[in-house]
Design a protein around this nucleic acid. Structure first.
Length: 732
DNA sequence: ATGTCGCGGGAC
DNA sequence: TCCCGCGACATA
């Protein structure tokens, strides 16, 4: 079957894939001593030397006399066959050129170089000339480590001494100083430690997952359960089974930088912290993880989506927590959804996938419904918490002034909670101060110069911001249309304006605002969340930032200011997103020590989505949603369309890119996913321009024809490729 | 990505 | 006439 040679003798023709933005691998001659397939090498490219991977036998079709020789084989274990297969399939799936895929897989610094060293200290053989308290503490600290070495700062901190005490002991040979590579294995995790007691349905689900992992085969399970039903404990048992089998596990989290809580739970279950991979980890640590994952020195990685491209030696389980979360979509460079890539990768390495969510994505729901994914549902809620009671507040009967949004019943409910020492959340999913700025002199609404959206006033930032393409400008004093001064008025609510109203309505209460543009660093945000959780605020005014992650034990009331907000407009996924968001936000009041309530202010209490949210009839909702999509010709999974264009007329291509951005709203209405702002969908590759447009459309459908036709209007010479099936299951 | 080549325009 | 800077181009 497999006739690809695994070793190429000196002088043989080999294909080498580099991270240079070419179309694919280039042919080289194997170096002295030959080279293995998958080997990391250094190869000459023009006047430079670049890193690459031996991808296979030479492709030929290039003048043999012009071939150059691979200049060095790097001292890194070769890339495994399955990793190459994964990168190729994932690249084909997402229409991403292979070099860009390789870049994802080599996101660690100084790959080829030998590991840097640092000094470490352990117990030596000598005896101290004098016994002092400080010296005794150093010895005790080292004895406690049972032969494991410590760094100078770790040791002096543990012993509570200055570094000179340690240095003094080193001179006498009491403490041994050694050089040790920084790339050290992670502490062993012990899957045999006892788990938390599990409720009956948790125990059953855990057993199913343990058996699935034990099978050593591919399979995907959708693990569904409301907030607080104990999904984490259940999938940690799958992780335990995987580790016990000697295989590696990966847990993907959407907001990893904010997930200190999760790491603590892992430590409680397995006795040590796992490796942590996200954009915030240091270069040294990235390198360590990359190497340890490859050599088996890391059993469990907890990470962001890019952790999927680490060189696992034997990956047995991938958990995608909050699988519906949109941050699994990578929208720059390579375009992919980590949820789908997890399924693909697992199928290649005979691993299990657990997709965990309280509100699964329509795609996963459809795959479970079709029998492609196993489904496990957790119903009982663990501990004392109960599902928050959910009620609608019919706003048609409320007589609110035009610049106020908190209804009387909601304000009264919030007041009662605060008086009890509990917390209330006022939720409005709109960043900034006001969504519309209108000129009272001429009626002009300030729009974005680069796309079809309106500019949103952000008073905190003192700017107008486009939420579609990211364009910002200072807040103008005069109307850009009629030049009249002082007539620009803010219309409609944003979270900043809601906070203003809350401060006026509840002058005694401590009010915290949680919106992403108020915090410049994740650290700041993390600190604010922690302080709120400890009771540092009475009222939280927030955007969807509060829907995720952290648990607020004092929060017993969730008030949704405008539950209909997401249902306006004609976004194809509006219903799905609103349903998920409302259930998630309401769940924030379900984790408190006392039973909570969620109040949804709405003008359409009879809207089917609002009714589904209130009744909790998820199955019914998904079925209706799937039917509706089918009727619209837009199935949960569609096709990815890639358009590769020749640049006969460069300006036209850029016009297309700008048109894509300008018409992003219109495209979304027909079900297209437009990734990135203005020229982002365009990549220039060797004189040709590549535009990628992701469309969920079945082959041969009217939608697909419409997009092709639309692109055709630009009269570009190029081929429209509508090829790749986007359901990861269709790959195997 | 990035080094090289070739060309146009400005300074001398 | 020289040289700088920019864009196009090729990389095996």
């Amino acid at each position: 079957m497999n006739d690809t040679p695994s070793h190429f003798p000196e002088g043989a023709r080999v294909a080498v894939l580099t991270t240079q933005p070419l179309d694919g691998p280039l042919d080289y001659l194997a170096p002295e001593g030959g080279v293995m397939i998958g080997a990391f090498v250094e190869a000459p490219l023009g006047p430079r030397k670049v890193m690459g991977v031996v991808w296979g036998p030479g492709l030929g079709g290039f003048d043999a006399s012009k071939l150059r020789r691979v200049s060095a084989v790097l001292d890194v274990p070769p890339m495994r066959d399955e990793m190459r297969a994964f990168l190729e399939k994932a690249g084909a799936y997402t229409l991403t050129p292979l070099p860009a895929m390789l870049r994802l897989a080599t996101r660690a610094p100084a790959l080829g170089q030998p590991p840097s060293k640092r000094k470490v200290y352990r117990r030596g053989t000598g005896r101290p000339d004098r016994e002092t308290g400080a010296r005794a503490r150093v010895m005790a600290a080292l004895d406690e480590m049972g032969g494991l070495a410590l760094t100078l700062s770790e040791l002096s901190q543990m012993a509570g001494v200055t570094s000179s005490v340690v240095k003094g002991l080193v001179k006498q040979g009491v403490v041994a100083e050694e050089e040790s590579p920084r790339d050290t294995p992670y502490p062993r995790l012990d899957p045999a430690l006892p788990s938390k007691p599990l409720a009956e349905d948790q125990a059953e689900a855990a057993e199913v997952l343990r058996n699935a992992v034990a099978s050593g085969r591919y399979g995907t399970t959708l693990l569904k359960g409301v907030t607080g039903s104990g999904k984490t404990e259940v999938y940690l048992e799958a992780v335990a089974a995987c580790l016990a089998k000697g295989r590696q596990a990966l847990v993907l989290l959407p907001e990893i930088a904010l997930s200190a809580e999760f790491l603590t739970r892992v430590e409680a279950r397995f006795g040590a912290k796992p490796a942590e991979w996200h954009s915030g980890v240091t270069q040294t640590e990235r390198r360590r993880i990359w190497h340890m994952v490859g050599s088996g020195g890391a059993q469990l990685v907890v990470g962001a989506r890019s952790a999927l491209f680490l060189p696992f030696q034997d990956l047995g389980l991938v958990v995608v927590d909050e699988e519906h979360d949109s941050s699994y979509k990578q929208e720059e460079g390579a375009l992919y959804n980590a949820r789908d890539m997890a399924v693909l990768r697992a199928s290649i390495t005979d691993a299990q996938v657990v997709l965990a969510s309280a509100t699964p994505s329509l795609e996963s729901w459809a795959n479970a419904e079709a029998g492609k994914y196993r489904r496990l549902t957790l119903t009982s809620r663990f501990g004392t918490a109960a599902l928050p009671e959910m009620k609608s507040l019919d706003m048609r009967g409320e007589d609110l002034p035009a610049d106020r949004w908190i209804s009387e019943p909601l304000a009264a409910a919030a007041r009662r909670r605060i008086e009890n020492g509990e917390q209330a959340l006022l939720f409005l999913n709109r960043r900034g101060y006001a969504p519309v700025t209108i000129c009272r002199a001429c009626g002009h609404q300030i729009g974005c110069k680069h796309c079809d959206a309106r500019m949103v006033e952000h008073r905190f930032l003192k700017r107008l911001v486009c939420h579609q393409c990211g364009e910002t400008e200072p807040r103008p004093e005069v109307c850009p249309s009629c030049d009249v001064e002082g007539k620009l008025a803010a219309v409609g609510p944003g979270v900043e304006r809601l906070a203003e109203e809350a401060r006026a309505r509840f002058p005694e209460a401590r009010i915290a605002v949680l919106s992403s543009d108020m915090y410049t660093t994740a650290r700041q945000l993390k600190a604010e969340i922690a302080s709120i959780a400890e009771g540092g605020a009475d009222i939280i005014v927030g955007t969807q930032l509060v829907a995720k992650g952290h648990n607020f034990p004092l929060l017993t009331l969730v008030g949704v200011i405008d539950a209909d907000l997401g249902l306006q407009g004609s976004d194809l996924r509006a219903a799905e997103r609103t349903f998920q968001l409302m259930r998630q936000v309401a769940g924030r009041a379900g984790r408190a020590e006392k039973p909570g309530v969620a109040l949804l202010q709405t003008y359409q209490p009879d809207h089917p989505v609002i009714r589904a949210i209130l009744s909790g009839d998820e199955e019914g909702f998904w079925r209706a949603e799937a039917r509706e999509r089918e009727a619209a010709g837009v199935p949960p999974y569609g096709r990815m369309a890639g358009i590769i264009l020749s640049s006969e007329d460069v300006q036209k291509v850029f016009d297309l890119g700008n048109a894509l951005a300008r018409n992003a709203g219109a495209l979304r209405r027909i079900g297209a996913d437009v990734y990135g702002p203005a020229p982002a969908p365009i990549a220039r590759v060797r004189g040709r321009h590549r535009v990628r447009l992701l469309v969920k459309a079945p082959k041969g459908s009217a939608l697909q024809a419409a997009v092709a036709d639309w692109v055709g209007q630009f009269r570009l010479k190029g081929d429209l490729r509508l090829a790749v099936d986007i359901d990861p299951q269709s790959f195997f």
